[in-house]
Amino acid sequence: MLKVENVSKSFKKRLVLQDINLTVDAGELVHISGINGSGKSTLFKIIAKLLAPDQGKVTLGSDDYLGALIENPGFLEYESGLSNLAFLAKLNQHYDEGKIRQLMQRFSLDPDDPQAIKNYSIGMRQKVGIIQAVMEDQTIILLDEPTRGIDQEGIGQFTELCHELTSSGKSIVVASHDTIAEMKYDRQLHLENGVLHE
């Protein structure tokens, strides 16, 4: 379970998030929409502890493990997709090569493609970014503009994966300015002028 309580954040004098409250239960698929600059990525960074809020707090369940794709994924640019994923998974001893290969194949990426990730297309990089957020059996998954640059087939693979993960009890929060037609969200929230509306 993810719980965001009274989170506020300003940059200089600009108030970006104002008293945000959000609870996401196990198995929920939540959408946060909002125009460019509305604070979606900022909220995700605070949840992921990459950024400190001015006020409020974020708590996860004791068995929860957070996965996140936030803004443009960066990688070890000279390494292949597979070795990047392996490197990240090993940081927490969650490395399962079989699972990573399977996820890559599922997204039509060749795990044995030796080329450096810097030569990947935008959509391919994005897919690797999505995979790193789910490959370690993360229980709370934040996906910021996950379908950016991804082709129609990839979007289908992505929505299928999301539905599969939530039915196995994982919580997913997707932030995007547009809607993905095939996604069956349990809840749709809207971020506007720093306030999160139902």
Binding site: A48, L50, G67, G74, F75, L76, E77, N92
Partner: peptide
Amino acid sequence: MNFTTVKPYISLRGG
């Protein structure tokens, strides 16, 4: 510098 681009993913994992 090779590691700065991937830092958010490392931080997320407490690495």
